[in-house]
Design a protein around this nucleic acid. Structure first.
Lengths: 301, 301
DNA sequence: CCACATCATAGGTGAAACCGATTTCAGAAA
DNA sequence: TTTCTGAAATCGGTTTCACCTATGATGTGG
């Protein structure tokens, strides 16, 4: 029993004519006749009464018609759902984001939600390492994070934009007017840093170690928003990627004069793995967003 | 999209292995691989992530699986229902009966209902002419009635048993002891007859006319049960087919001495038309019933 | 009675479902 | 690193069968 045969049967049953049904279905009348016969043989029961001129449904045929229709509708809904998925009319998109990437994301998040209201968005804020675990376990479609210091097996990363570490201060801060900040400037103010393991902290530690320096850290905080609130209302300073304070008011980022402070904003995806249309479309939107466009490298097409 | 492909997909999705699924389905692994690919192409969306070693469902695949299962179940229910129909586990049987045939039927009716509780019985008591109309319109599966005087186009009749007209009287009636009744005896008692058009009346009128006789009819009644009640409680007499009073108490039928009083109890069916299994089975039971067996002619196998 | 429409049948053709063998690939073992 | 292994993809060849055209059978309307 195949859907094709069911389709043929239904059309013939509706029109009560093999010839007419064959015309509508764009097949030869003989083919329809045959296929109905095959179906009847398989079901072990006659579906049509044949009189040389007229056909009519047997009891079995009358019983089958609504059931056959239901079957076709079920099959149709399979097709429709799959096509919708392709057109982003439905589905779920699981996105992992590091805290520092968050402000870059929000703009695109809103835009995507507006354009594709059928797609459910599931955004997870976590430290990079955890996100990579989840990505490997296929719980996430992609991760937005800066490139980690060491490659992770099975994951491919595409650079969205270049960024660098910056010293974050409030607008009224003495350092706010400077073009760049050196290591000595940092020592003059209370330095409050993101917790160890967070990406900006990793990068900062790395380039400090590289330069053979050492800093005495008074406060560590694993929540960037709160950290920035502290910065905004005090003369304390911190070091984050410049992108992290995108769109924030009352604070500014000043380039840090240390080698190795470059960071690459990346999309991380599982290698050799099917990419959802919605995922690719989201990344396309992200790449075209104001936050990213200025320094985007094009790898996506 | 065909049910076969959906079956393949479902099995592969359940086992998460093309090789294993192919084994279970008794097809080659390459075939499964191909057919899944064909399905994906048609749906325009990938269903599996392929890594050389492992496959896993894409989002689309996960979405499709339950829908695909529903489709297969619908198809299954088509098959099951059709097979049940063949085995008389379900369906409807529409039977037309004339009033005079009714007592012959009841026994079989109960037996059939007991044996095939899944089959709905729809029994219609009507005059023969109306029943034949309904049969031609395919509203009835078969009609139980005596053979009509003239053949009806498109309907074939099979004799179940032979019968004859009888004079019906109550047990205590003066005629009750006689072996047969002639025309003169009829004149001596109040004759109450079924209405014109009913089969026994037709037969009676025919053989009376044939014999060149004439009767003065005092009462006509179109309801046999009420007619028989009158007979049972009075000295009135009537003429019906002998079979009509089968299983009735308090009255008896005495053969009528008139030529042409033979009647043939028949099953009437539409020619060149699919016969329901349930219909054939019902007729088989009827033929084997006590009421019919004694004088059955075998035409059914 | 004949033209016509309908369904069934027969024979031939091409697409595609299928198979076995081979290749490719990633991960495990050495 | 190389080798081995198991699973999926790919490749030709075969067979099946869905399909078509042509024809036959049959009942219908003019």
């Amino acid at each position: 029993m195949e859907l094709r045969q069911i389709k043929y049967f239904v059309k013939a049953a509706e029109l009560l004519s093999f010839s007419e049904a064959a015309r509508v279905l764009n097949i030869a009348q003989s083919t329809l006749s045959q296929q109905v016969r095959v179906l009847e043989d398989e079901l072990g029961i006659q579906l049509f009464d044949r009189h040389s001129h007229v056909i009519s449904l047997t009891e079995a045929g009358r019983e089958l018609l609504p059931l056959a229709l239901r079957t076709l509708h079920e099959a149709d809904s399979c097709l429709a759902r799959m096509q919708d998925l392709g057109k982003l009319a439905t589905g779920t998109l699981n996105i992992g984001v590091t805290y520092s990437f968050s402000p870059i994301l929000t703009e695109t998040l809103l835009e995507f939600a507006k354009r594709y209201p059928g797609v459910r968005l599931n955004v997870l804020y976590k430290p990079m390492a955890e996100l990579m675990e989840l990505l490997s376990a296929r719980s996430l479609d992609f991760v937005l994070a800066f490139r980690p210091s060491e490659r992770i097996e099975g994951i491919e990363s595409h650079v969205l934009f270049d960024n660098h570490l910056g010293v974050i201060v409030r607008d009224s801060h003495p350092l706010a007017a400077k073009q760049s900040v050196g290591a000595d400037d940092l020592r003059r103010y209370n330095l409050i840093l993101p917790s160890k393991g967070l990406q900006a902290r990793n990068a900062f530690d790395r380039c400090v170690a590289q330069a053979g320096l050492a800093f005495d850290i008074h406060i560590e905080l694993n929540e960037v928003n709160i950290l920035l609130e502290l910065i905004r209302h005090s003369n304390m300073i911190t070091v984050l990627s410049e992108a992290t304070i995108y769109n924030r008011t009352g604070i500014k980022a000043i380039p840090l004069e240390l080698p190795g402070s470059e960071m690459e904003g990346c999309v991380h995806m599982l290698r050799n793995c099917y990419r959802k249309h919605s995922a690719l479309e989201f990344i396309r939107l992200l790449r075209d967003s104001d936050a990213v466009r200025a320094r985007a490298r094009s790898w996506l097409d």
